[in-house]
């Protein structure tokens, strides 16, 4: 019984506590900022997005993104701002044109090439006539039965 009352008490306490404590909500600008920062590389870090990095530069970059968002700039404008200063290097997703083209085209080409190669292989293999597997003799069949039973048991 004391256990139960303790539970009730703590439940009441919890409710009470959560009743007067403020519910915090996330600042929508913060979310937008992090969404943009997620696709930018922190230049001093090693392969880390600006959103996750603890470095000074990343902190500054996050502050700049915030300011620009509050000034009403769009995602594209903000990303372009950093690309103009740091180059394509800051983009975690390489651009579709220019130096990034190869990256987006090659996977498809490789799929076509390897797939085509496999197709040709399979066709050439299926056209080839190989000597038919000789019929199994009675002796063979007996051996197979024995082996099967051994496996099954």
């Amino acid at each position: 019984m004391p256990k139960f009352s303790a539970m009730v008490l703590s439940a009441v306490l919890l409710c009470g506590l959560s009743a007067w404590a403020g519910d915090v909500t996330e600042d929508p600008v913060e979310r937008q900022m992090l969404d943009i920062a997620k696709d930018l590389r922190c230049a001093v870090c090693q392969n880390e997005p600006v959103s996750d990095s603890k470095s000074d530069l990343a902190t500054d970059m996050r502050a700049i993104i915030r300011e620009k968002l509050e000034a009403g700039e769009s995602r594209e404008q903000i990303v372009a701002y950093f690309v103009e200063r740091y180059g394509n290097y800051v983009l975690l997703k390489p651009p579709y044109q220019g130096t990034g083209t190869v990256l987006w085209v090659m996977p498809l080409l490789m799929l076509v090439a390897v797939g085509g190669f496999a197709f040709v292989y399979l066709r050439s293999r299926s056209r080839r006539t190989l000597p038919a597997t000789p019929e199994l003799s009675e002796e063979d069949k007996a051996r197979i039965r024995a082996a099967r039973e051994e496996v099954d048991s």
């Binding site: 696709d39 392969n47 394509n88 983009l91 390489p94 130096t99 990256l103």
Partner: peptide, 24 residues
């Protein structure tokens, strides 16, 4: 392999630098 080594190849050939990250 392509995504991992392409930045290196690009830098070796043209001195340009790009990042190939998780979104790619």
């Amino acid at each position: 392999l392509l995504g991992t080594l392409y930045p290196l190849a690009l830098e070796a050939l043209t001195a340009a630098k790009i990042t190939v990250g998780a979104p790619y």
